[in-house]
Design a protein around this nucleic acid. Structure first.
Lengths: 144, 144
DNA sequence: GGTTGACCTCAACTTTGGTTGAGGTTCTAT
DNA sequence: ATAGAACCTCAACCAAAGTTGAGGTCAACC
């Protein structure tokens, strides 16, 4: 149950110290300070970082991670159940994402058949269709 | 077979004019110019944009799209077969991506079972493991 | 008790994928 | 022939997700 220094967290999580500072500025992780103003982390920080990394793999922006973390308890360290709930949520997100990609792949395969891959004949990448989800701007996590 | 102006391409592709300029600077699309220096596009530009959008959905950077486009013929407009080859490549990329996400999901599901989601007990998000593919930096398309 | 490595803050810089605006030109319709 | 829409270039700006460096402090070992 010892508290961890930035360097230890950096080594164990495989994340640069500068990234840890950055995550802290963004409110994704917290730290206590020693008398000499150095950071000390509880061990739950490692789980938080694990979640951050998973989220990034799926292409979710850090802001979304922050919102998800807002559901974790603020006073006490998160319990096993808190983490489990969050993991379940992540899994759903992943499933959706996978389904989207499947859909995309099927359409792409269809387009190879017809030889089109055009914006008009093929609904793929067409901003009017359901897959493109409105398409009023690039890079929206929600509707992507 | 009429040539298209930027505005027409923008409307038909659902992409801002500024983005078209940007893609041109990056070498992803080409244009001819009128006597008055205005851009005119061949209709294959719409397919190029479709491919760009698909690539972005999958999280591929534009630079990778540029490399893929380098395989398209430079003198003549790309044939149906040229596009089909590119689509097939894209489909493989998508399949890999889907497989990765499946793998990730399975691990995440496992972690809910064990209640861990920790950097040590669980290989998920652990930089040492196979899934993380070396993990020497965030955001690498190749090994992601 | 000193030196070396780990740590601190703050500001500036990087990359990707664009957008916005200024200042000027061209095209089209009446 | 002229108004207005669409186009041009170029430079500056934006956001995300950090990294890099300057200048200074802390801590741990010998």
């Amino acid at each position: 149950m010892r508290e961890l220094s930035v360097g230890e967290v950096s080594r164990r999580a495989g994340v640069a110290v500068s990234a840890l500072h950055f995550y802290e500025r963004k409110g994704l992780i917290q730290s206590l300070r020693t008398a000499g103003n150095q950071r000390r982390y509880g061990s739950d920080v490692l789980r938080r970082i694990a979640v951050i990394r998973v989220a990034q793999r799926v292409g979710m922006p850090l802001e979304a991670v922050g919102k998800a973390f807002a559901n974790l308890p603020s006073g006490r360290p998160p319990s096993r159940d808190d983490w489990a709930a969050l993991s379940a949520l992540w899994r759903d997100e992943l499933e959706q994402r996978i389904a989207q990609l499947h859909n995309l792949k099927d359409r792409l395969t269809g387009c190879i058949g017809c030889g089109c891959l055009s914006l008009e004949a093929c609904s793929l990448a067409n901003p009017g269709d359901a897959l493109a989800a409105g398409g009023d701007g690039p890079r929206r996590w929600a509707g992507e």
